[in-house]
Simulated scan of single mutants.
Amino acid sequence: MTSFDFVSYDAALAVTAGLVVFAALLLLKAFIARQLRQRAKTAKPSFLEYAEQITTGTRLPFFIGIALLVGFSQTELSALHAKWLNYAWIIILVSQIALWGNRIIAVAVQRSFIYQRQSDPASATHLMIAGLIGRIVLWSTAALVVLDNLGFNITTIMASLGIGGIAVALAVQNILGDIFSSVSIALDKPFVIGDFIIVDSYMGTVEYVGMKTTRLRSLGGEQIVFSNAELLKCRIRNYKRMQERRVLFEFGIAYETPMTEIERLPQTVKDIVSASYLETRFDRAHFKGYGDSALLFEVVYYVLDPDYNKYMDIQQEINLGLLAALRDRKISFAYPTRTLYVAPSPANEEISNAAEKLVA
């Protein structure tokens, strides 16, 4: 056999082995996917979902890489080439394992997030942070494993990273500030996913808490994005944690109202606010003072349910009850009025006397 024939035979063997492995991997993926679909029709335990994600997460480039490596393994390689082939095996296998782990983390976080968002919003907030930290640890470990198997001194690399980390930290201090702020949000819990908060002049429901940003869904429907570091510098009002709502309102009645009705009015307001069908706790009702055109009353009560719609329903019932009570007693609400006094003068007296004579 000539050297040319030997090379041709070697190449044909490599190509054949690569194609066989490639086809076998595709068939194996199809077989596993079909078995998982059949299992899903009867029952779908949680571990089957992870297996399904691992199967679907195994992409064509991985199969091509494995097939090429198997093909090259069938050829005569020098020591240097065999060494590089070994490195390629390490890089491809570790990378694919890391991709599988990343997919498992993503599925686990998503499944837990959907469940925890309703039952325990605080845990849902932690999951977003834990998922990202898990990915960072996973890929850092994968990188260190690859470097270690490639012959690098990990201890020296870690020491170099420690020294270079100071420069990197100075360059990305804003990003690091947001990351530490996200950890502070996760630990201190000033708000969690699902809380309705007001930040400065912005308000909305917390939708997502990430490593760099927090996102709110406003009442108008748009999404508001805050940097975590800037968010914690602001005063945050968390309405989700309100246990009861304090309500203060005023109204004014006409100055012509009889004294007896004015004295009875605070008790009337108390009876209306304290009605048994309203979820309220009466605090006080007082004749507050004298307005420009009204006798002013101030009322304070508490709504025992923090829901805003419930508060508006109760306030409407109180307003209707108060209006009906005042109309029954012929008490009118005050409205802006002005009385004009004309000072007496000789010219005015002559005009008045002339008018009286004409009438007479």
Rank of each mutant, 00 (worst) to 15 (best):
F4G: 06
V7A: 11
Y9Q: 13
A17C: 08
A23P: 03
K29G: 14
A30N: 11
L36P: 14
K44P: 12
P45V: 07
P45E: 06
P61Y: 09
I64Y: 04
V70A: 10
A88G: 10
A88S: 13
A88N: 02
I92G: 03
I92S: 03
G101H: 04
V109Y: 05
Q110D: 06
F113G: 02
Y115S: 14
Y115V: 14
R117G: 09
S123M: 06
A124T: 07
L132M: 12
A143G: 15
V146T: 10
T155P: 05
M158H: 00
V168G: 08
A169Q: 01
L170F: 09
G204V: 08
G210S: 04
K212E: 00
S218P: 12
Q223F: 13
I224V: 12
S227Y: 03
E230N: 07
L231V: 04
L232M: 10
I236A: 08
Y239R: 13
Q243N: 14
R246K: 12
F249G: 00
I253S: 01
T257F: 00
E263T: 07
Q267W: 07
Q267C: 06
T268K: 02
T268D: 05
D271P: 00
I272F: 03
V273D: 14
A275Y: 07
Y277P: 04
H286E: 15
F297R: 00
Y308A: 05
D313M: 08
R327F: 02
F333M: 09
A334G: 11
Y335Q: 10
A343I: 00
N348D: 14
N348L: 12
A354G: 09
L358I: 09
